[in-house]
Each structure stands twice: as C-alpha cells, then as structure tokens.
Amino acid sequence: MTSSLLFNITTFFYLMSMLAFFAFIATRVKALGVAGSAIALGGLVLQTIAIGLRWKESYALGVGHAPLSNLYESVVFFSWTIVLIYALLDLKYRYRVIGAFVMPFALMGMAWAQLGLHSGIEPLVPALQSNWLLYHVITCFLGYATFAVACGISVMYLIRENHERATSASDRSIVATFPSTRVLDDLNYKAIMIGFPLLTLGIVTGAAWANYAWGTYWSWDPKETWSLIVWFIYAAFLHARITRGWAGGRAAWLSIVGFVATIFCYLGVNLLLSGLHSYGG
C-alpha cells in the first residue's frame, strides 16, 4: 500500500461524503447526514495514515522530511486540516448540514492535488531545512482551515438570512434544515475565535523563522503582506460583533472576504506574484 494510492481513496471518500451531504439536504433523510459525517471521518483517518506513510516513504528515499515541503504536500495538508476542523465541529455540535458547505473545499483540494500537481517526493531545499517549517506550516494551515469552515458557515448564514426575510416561518424548503441565523453567527464566531489565534501564531512563527534565517522578521514580502491583510480582515470581523450595524450579515461577508484573501495569500501569491515563498509552500 503506497501513500499515493491511499490519497486517491481519500479523495473518493471526500467525494462520497459530499454527495451524501447533498442528498441529505435534498431528502432530509437523517441517515444520509450521519453517513456523510461517517464517510468524512473515515476519509480523515485514511488521509492521516497516508500522510504518515508519505513521511515514512521520504525517509526510505533518504531525503527524510515532514510532507509539508511543496505545493502538492501543502494542498493535501490543507484538505486534511479542513476535514479535521469540520470533524471536531461536527463531534461537538452535530449540525450535519454544514458538511455540505465545507466538504467541497476539502474535495477540491484533494482532487486538484491528485490530478493537477506534481506529487514526487523531493529533497528539502536549504531554505526549508529548519524545525520552524513544522511549527509555521501547521499553525498557518490549521488557521486557514478554520477560515474555510467559517466561510462555509457564513455562506449558509447569508442564504438563511435571505430566506428568512423572504418567506414565512412555516416553510418546509431545503433552507429550513439549516441551523438558525443566531446559531450560524455563533458558530462562525467560534470558528474564527480558534482560527485567529492560530493565524497569529503562524505569522509570529514565520517572523521568528525569517529573523533566524534572513535577519529580518518582516520585509513586506507579498506573502507576509497578504497574511497581514488576512489578519486585518479577521481582526475587523472580531470587532464587527461589538460594533453597531456590523453584526450579522456584514460580519458574514467579512468572513467570506477573509477566506478569499486567505486563499489568495496561500495560492494567489505563489502563482501570480513573486517573492520569498516561491517554492510553493
């Protein structure tokens, strides 16, 4: 059994999980929601094993390093963190329907990595040979993943809010299966409450590493700047909740804009701009 085969099976699991969640929304058959969660959880376990296996394989090739060193590995890790955060949320709150808005992100990541990215295990370039790599990448991606989950929840919030305005309470449509706007708003806040400290830690560990390796903790490199832009947006989100006129819908929009900026920080900067993170991590 190779890690690459396991990653393919994981991708299939995430696809099935997403389809189960879609079917759950359409039919409201409870078992489908449970199945969606269970398949996602199974995929998470498989992917965890696959990542461990890839780590081991890199040692067998004599270039041993954590599988966080290029675009393929980081996209795979990003998908893993998204499902992990969703699984924790699901175990705690059991709002199954959220899976329909979160699993597509994980599936997109895995599908892109498996079909479109170079998956070879390569030796670590000198710039990445540091323990900081592990701390920096893990904190950043856990933060990104909570923002992905928060974005999914915010989309649900906006759909639900729109719907509540337009129809009566005795409605039996798909949207009525969503948690209430109050619950969604609260979950959105809770997710970002976990993501913001992680992003902060990610930026701080990145600055510490930059200072250790290059002698400057901040150089306004595009990646650094975009991580700060993301930080500003979520700082605004956290203050929006206590500012008159900003709670609710506007906060949900901030959360979505925040995730768009996160994705640009992660991928856009590497693919469109030039800078210090050019190796694709």
């Binding site: 832009i229 700082a235 605004a236 203050h239 206590i242 500012t243």
Partner: peptide, 12 residues
C-alpha cells in the same frame, strides 16, 4: 469602534 473598523479594512 467605527474608526477601528475603518482603519482595519483600509489597512487591509
């Protein structure tokens, strides 16, 4: 707080 919101969004 409106100033805070303005500054954070403008900085971003």
């Amino acid at each position: 707080l409106k100033l805070t919101m303005f500054l954070l969004i403008t900085l971003a």
